[in-house]
Design a protein around this nucleic acid. Structure first.
Lengths: 237, 237
DNA sequence: GCAATGTTTCGCCCGGGAACGAAGTATGGA
DNA sequence: TCCATACTTCGTTCCCGGGCGAAACATTGC
């Protein structure tokens, strides 16, 4: 009767609390082992094993065997995007077990969204790039302008690799805490990596939230301002 | 343990085949009655009633009582967007019960995505607007340029109402069949309405797919070309 | 007021699937 | 070689939740 892809299958996969917890944990972008996931989801090893089979068959995760560990990560940026969309919906529908604790605040400030930066910092980055004329709409979607390429190059990103990659450099991703878009894609990923290399952001053990170091606290706003001002020539219409 | 909105609740709602069928049917943007949904989902009236309670409590649908009928529609554009994202994921993961039948082809060509145009036609519209310089990135997201406003006004859209509305005029939405973005938001909705008024597109009884009338077949490509050429002055950076 | 239609409530059945314990298999280190 | 760790497989239990039929409730039209 109803045509189109089978949404129920995926919904059911996400619909189990244990699996949802695992997937949410994997939004950190890190590859976690089966036992780590067991801890996160609050279930035993056998149960996790069963869940991993289902998630793999469903194409939501990829599993890599390495020695006696089994590393699990999301199957791709697409999956992360869809999950983020669901997170946004869940948030807006009040389905949030949210007592705004300290970790929650940290999440809103800066967090990993699969492989790029999200939260207030992610939004600030995206806006700065936009204000600086680094991004442009093309018929094929979002793209880096020449100026944008220059800016990122100046930050020390490996631009040739970025432009060569099959993955689109720029995509937008819906930020569930800020209810706007932030930058995803190859450039988004490279920027997060770079910020961590520079010691401005530091991952946490326990959650997707990122710690903004003292240096980051000083340098990131400065950077955003610089990026934003770069576009003080021809602003878009 | 894992923080963030409760994704499992919504996943579970979407995860039931009957509910998924109902939600997919509601992506047509039409308000359907409970019994129509029963037919779509292939279940009985009592079961539908129970599902409607859950979906309402979950904030995914809105129900409006009218006489002895109960009209059901999606709770908002947000829900439609998230569903479309899931449709895209399901499609890419091969979870598609797809024998490319005639209806499927029609869906890919033109269909309703909640309240705006999707499929090949939707993509073509979006690209034409972009090529014509009708759209611009702003720090607040996608927006209509002055030229864009002029173009849409020329098409007979009620621009004052559009700009006055609280709803953002332009948003992007992921097209699951074309794997790119198309235009959503107030302008997207208004354009679809206008195309139907002009008799270029006609809704079908049975599915989200739209019929492109003979006039539409002639006029839509012409329109897209005109829109795209409008930007032959100052193209973006 | 009465019959027809649309929807909900109740009670029941039934299946699927999530969870665990125990035992089995692989890997790494002493 | 032998044990410890990480994970899987198997078998079992158990409960949640979808489904229907029957009956109640609501609304419209005659």
């Amino acid at each position: 009767m109803s045509h189109g892809p089978d949404i129920a299958r995926i919904g059911a996969l996400i619909g189990d609390p244990a699996r949802a917890a695992m997937l949410t944990a994997l939004m950190s972008g890190k590859a976690l082992t089966a036992s780590e996931l067991a801890r996160v989801a609050g279930i035993g090893a056998p149960t996790v094993s069963a869940h991993l089979v289902k998630l793999t068959e469903g194409g939501l995760i990829a599993v890599e065997k390495q020695g006696r560990h089994r590393y699990v990560r999301l199957a791709g940026a697409e999956v992360a995007e869809a999950l983020e969309a669901l997170l946004g919906l869940a948030q807006s529908r009040g389905h949030l077990p949210f007592r705004p604790g300290p970790d929650d605040q940290a999440m809103r400030r800066a967090r990993v969204c699969y492989d790029h930066l999200a939260g207030e910092m992610g939004i600030a980055l995206y806006r700065a790039l936009q204000a600086g004329g680094a991004l442009a709409l093309t018929p094929d979607g979002l793209a880096l302008t020449d100026r944008g390429q220059g800016l990122l190059d100046g930050l020390g990103l490996d631009m040739p690799a970025l432009m060569r990659a099959r993955r689109p450099a720029c995509r937008t991703c819906l930020d569930w805490s800020e209810r706007t878009h932030h930058l995803a894609g190859g450039a988004g990923a490279a920027l997060l990596t770079r910020f961590q290399e520079l010691g401005w952001l530091r991952p946490r053990q326990t959650s997707r939230a990122l710690r903004v170091t003292l240096e980051g606290e000083r340098e990131l706003p400065r950077l955003f301002e610089r990026l934003g001002q770069a576009g003080q020539g021809p602003p878009g219409p």
